[in-house]
Amino acid sequence: MRYAAPLTTKEAVSLLANAKGKAFVLAGGTDLLVRMRGDYIEPDLLVDIKRITATQDIKKSANGFRIGASVPCAALNENAGLVKAWPGVVEAANLIGSDQIQSRCTMVGNLCNASPAADTIPAMVAAQASAVIVGPAGRRTLAVEKVVIGPGKTSLKKGELIEAITLPKRPAKSGDAYLRFIPRTEMDIAVCSAGVNLTLDAQGVVKAARVALGAVAPTVVLVPDAAKAIVGTKLDSAALERLAKACEAACAPIDDKRGTVEFRTEVAGVLARRAAKIAYERAGGK
């Protein structure tokens, strides 16, 4: 195996594009190195992107936020502007693993690992985040929900890497939240999860909503019916019940060592309901 630490995205793309054998991007390494140790993958080349300036910081612009691909999740919480605008995305990122993992893991890594149970993906999907993809053919931007196409599989082509995630500009009276269920209080992989992003009108009525669920299908699912269930409401209990039912209907989970079909389906609805209430409060709703 070869290890390379290029200084530019262009150089990284060229290394990945020209690699013979299996090449992997290394950012925080909290998934990649675990898979290497467990012999699930045997890379021929690791391209460490942490020394590439364009991946290293969080930038705020008129269009929203740009979060570099090697920014560790711990750093998201240290950016007050980001926490204020996207508390749900930040809390999702900060739920991954321990403080030790937080120092290393990245949102882009979480996305590219493409686990159905990834914590940041439902929050990013709810937030309408996009991935800035750079490859041999140049740059493109892709909605986050289109990056993952199956468990462990992304739509990235050979030579492509994600340089950053962008989060859109926040309208007034908006809020987001992310909740997951784990058996312990820390360190577990989500058994199921829900990300909710809302914008309210002046009266506190939900005027736009996005609801995404994790670990209940092969990929994170955006649930338009769940959004519909609460748009036009002030999140009264009937609306929340409709939201939960719509979420349950969108679940197509599996039985595995972490949870049952029944449990995941039922709790996904509960979490969506609870997350919606938090997002609503954050958006200024009462």
């Binding site: 290890y3 630490a5 390494g29 190195l33 140790r37 403080d99 030790q100 120092s103």
Partner: peptide, 27 residues
């Protein structure tokens, strides 16, 4: 554990707490 789950290998890297089992020497 060698998978970042137990923290027995904790060190700091540029001031941040990490599991040294999930860092490459090459990095």
């Amino acid at each position: 554990c060698s998978t970042g789950d137990c923290g027995a290998c904790s060190i700091t890297l540029d001031g941040r707490l990490v599991c040294s089992c999930l860092v490459l020497g090459a990095e």
